[in-house]
Design a protein around this nucleic acid. Structure first.
Lengths: 205, 205, 205, 205
DNA sequence: AAGTAACCGAGACGGTACGTCGAGTCTTCGC
DNA sequence: GCGAAGACTCGACGTACCGTCTCGGTTACTT
């Protein structure tokens, strides 16, 4: 375990003049051709930039990708505040669904988790950081729920999130099964009984 | 979507004389160096075989890997029958934990899901098939639970499995967080209330 | 000083199928563009061969060039036997003139002596070997002259050859001055008095 | 043939402030690494100067080198005046020997003649000019010899010089053979009979 | 002493070639 | 005549220098 939660925010001064074009090209090609099909040479050509320029700023493919993902807004998300725990969780899960099935984000996320190397791969670290970051930004949902008394004492929000995100992940990414409309709601209702104090009125159906 | 559920069993007659050595080498190198670090050349050398020999029998790296995984016993598992739904689910989840954290299986599974991003990747298909296969073999658990009346009517076993496997997956593979002892039980208890008819004894700890 | 006189003959079994095309291209491009302008990539393209193939067989540009020169007939020459020392020497010098002014050989020879590296350069070694080889093959001229009694006792054939070849070299290669017709004869007559016993009858003019 | 004999002297006003440092670095690196191993980048770094500064003043590597050699005193030499043709010639040849075997000058001269093979190379032109310059400065030796009556009528001083310098060149630079002590004298005695009116005393040893 | 013009440092850039690696194909040869 | 060996094409890798460019600051000469 290294640093608990690296910022995942952009460092503005760094990068070549054509940084945006390069990172755009990288993400576009990643979506088109997948991680292994993504070549630095193609990125350079697509961005109208010399290969050397890319290597001057990013030492490797995963490093470039990491920067592209970190600097770009692709993985940003809004933390919901609907007034109820269930509403917030459904919204959060919905956002995961969108992330994992959206045309532009799907292959990016898939690539991000390709953990190519043995274990300490830069991309894998990015995934870990991404989830840590996302979790920390989702904390207010649980703080608010606790304040409302909706959260059963001793309930572990991390486990709750793992369950919800995991279900979407397994179905969309691993099993490549279709996600029915309302899947987010289904998922939330499946886990909520063990975490919420009282079923909020009018929940079931 | 292609064929619903390819056999995932070995075709005995097929393969060169050194098939076992080749597949062994492939799996070993996969574990050592990850998917992208796994080269056909290294496999050939390690197996004491010419590269051509490999290509004669398997058209590509993912195809070889698929065969190696399919023919090998690495991904096999026993379907539990403990007498209770909860016991079976804990056992199933435990097996997923073992699969995703075991020294030999972890990187294999990780590689298996490194699908290149474009949809028709052979490896991604293998992952899909693997999960479909696993699910179909887990069906008896739910058949027996239904016979015992432990399963709430209308409950979706697939969702249940997605939730359980997903939580383990997210935590172990994506977030690379440690899995505490008893994690499987925690997971099961978190999802069971929504699926089981009766709250299993001792759940609300 | 290493081995006295390496063979400078071709090793028949060695080399790729397209060895001839590659070496031809190398020599042609050498003549066209000079040594530093000669790139492996151009050789590969010109020979219709992949760059990898060249590197499989020759580790470097000078190595390839050395092989091309050694295997090719470009630097071959016939040892004259005119019946008199003077006639032989004129013929030998004439051959040097041809070598150093011929369209195809000039830039090759020039490149061969570019001694790019510090001192122990492969190409420089080739030049050294080339001259050693040439000298050893010219020996019969002096043996015959000695048998005829034309050679002053104690005369050093090596010095004689250095003088003759050197004059042509300095004029043609270094000073890039035109070589008048009959230059070979002039050179020989300038050095012969110090080496020959008697001026052969009817020599002067 | 271009301009008969460019000055080969320094133009004092021209050059950056760090001209001396740059040219020193260039010559030092040339001696250390040879011509092709000499990079502008290394020169810049070594001279503590930006690459741009070099290119502002010299358009290319050979141009810089030419200036460095021209401005430096490395290639200067004194014209001897011993009182006899033979003495002068021995001294001249001795100077060539020193030039071609001296630690600092050898690789410089070697590089200077690494002309790229195509005819209009700047470095090759430098070599040509260098020799032309040297020859023109050696003229007084022959003028004095003629005045003393030591020079056979019709003798061609240029051929004489080509022979002497060529012998040293071939032996030291091309054949990389050791030059015995007294080699200059040997060379002179080998060519003198054809050029001098009287055999210099003690020649026919 | 001030103004100005030439000069310089810093460093990014497009470009060509380098030498290497691995994928996948094709030819050749032996059992 | 099957099957293995080895040479091949191809594309990309990551690096080194090339020669160019812009920009902002510093000399040093001029008046």
């Amino acid at each position: 375990m290294s640093d608990p939660a690296p910022p995942l925010s952009r460092r503005p001064g760094a990068g070549p003049r054509a940084a945006a074009a390069i990172q755009d090209a990288a993400l576009r090609l990643l979506a088109e051709r997948g991680y292994t099909g993504l070549t630095m040479e193609a990125v350079a050509q697509e961005a109208g930039v010399n290969k050397t320029t890319i290597y001057r700023w990013w030492p490797s493919k995963p490093a470039l990708l990491r920067a592209a993902l970190t600097d770009g807004a692709l993985l940003d998300f809004e933390v919901p505040d609907t007034g109820s725990l269930r509403g917030d969780l459904v919204a959060l899960t919905e956002r995961v669904v969108v992330l994992l099935t959206g045309a532009r984000t799907e292959s990016v996320v898939r690539a991000m988790t390709s953990g190519s190397g043995t274990s300490d791969d830069e991309l894998a670290m990015l995934a870990r950081d991404f989830f840590a970051d996302r979790f920390s930004r989702e904390q207010p949902v649980f703080r608010r729920a606790a304040e409302r008394g909706e959260l059963r004492p001793g309930a572990d929000p991390m486990l709750l999130l793992d369950l919800m995100a995991g279900a979407v992940w397994v179905r969309a990414v691993l099993r490549r099964a279709p996600l029915p409309a309302g899947f987010a709601r289904e998922v939330v209702d499946a886990v909520l009984p063990a975490f919420a104090t009282v079923p909020p009125p009018g929940v079931n159906t």
